[in-house]
Each structure stands twice: as structure tokens, then as C-alpha cells.
Amino acid sequence: MSLCEKNIFKSIFDEWNQSIQRFIQARKIAAEDAADLTQECFVRLWKNCHKVSRDGASSYLFKLAQNISIDHFRKQQVRLKYTGQMASKSEKEDGQYLMEMQEFKERLEKAIDGMSEASRVVFVMHRMENYSYKEIANQLEIGIKAVEKRMHKALKYLSEQNILKKR
């Protein structure tokens, strides 16, 4: 099963492209730029398809994404959207609730932006990509303790922001 076969490559793309986009955006890179950089990662993976195994593809992609986004101009905001899993039907029709959630979304976006990059990346990977601390440690090539510290910092920052109430 070589990555150089288009259908295998496409399956890797389907499995990872959204994660890589979010991983890059967690570095405050705008959605469109993140999509371009994600493409660049996959083009490079394609060029090296004979050197990378199917199992090694994801760590290769994350490593590329990390390197590629290192010096990318970043002054954007992390943009969030609803997962679609939100709330019950009655809540979806409740205007007051929707407004509150909209305000919550905006305050959370701001809070995520305010985190240090290291904490933001760990927070997004753990909370929005459901990676375990161990998986994050492996992808970022740091110790689990460092992941825990970064996550602690992220949560500390969140708790200090006035996210639940109106300012």
C-alpha cells in the first residue's frame, strides 16, 4: 500500500486535512491561508510519497504543518463555528439562548486568541481535535509534562477571562 497510489493518498487526505487546517489555524493563521498551507503540506507529502509509510503520514504532515506555519504572518483571529451538535431543538429555537451562545462564541474566540501560541495549540488539539496529552506530546515532540503545563496555562487564562458574563 504505497502513498503514491492516488486512492490511498486521497484516503490520507480525507482523514487528516481538516485536522491539519485546524492545527495551522491554532497558530492564528487565517482560514484561507491555512487551507493554502495545508495544500502545501499535502503536495510535499505527495512528492515524498515513496519515503513515507501510510502509518507515518500523519506525524509527517503535522511536522510539516508546524514547520510551514512557523514564520507565516499571523495577526488573524481564530474563527469558530458550531459543530452542529449544539443544543436541543427547543434551545435552537430560543432566541435568547442563541444570542447568548453567539456572545459566548465571540468571547471564546477572543480568549483563544489571547492565549500564548504554545498553550493555544495544545488547547485546540486537546479540546477540538480530541487528542490525548500523550498524542499531543508525540506530535509536538515535547514531554507530557510540558503538554500539561501548557494546558494548565490555557485553562488558567480561560478562567481569568469573563467569558460567561457580559462585560
Binding site: F13, R79, L158
Partner: peptide, 15 residues
């Protein structure tokens, strides 16, 4: 906050 955060994800370009 974390409970509500679960309903949100980062916007991406469609696959």
C-alpha cells in the same frame, strides 16, 4: 465554559 466550548470548532475550508 468547556461544556459550551464543545459545541464549537475551528472553521475550515471544506475537504
Amino acid at each position: 465554559i468547556l461544556e459550551r466550548q464543545k459545541t464549537l470548532e475551528i472553521q475550515t475550508v471544506s475537504s
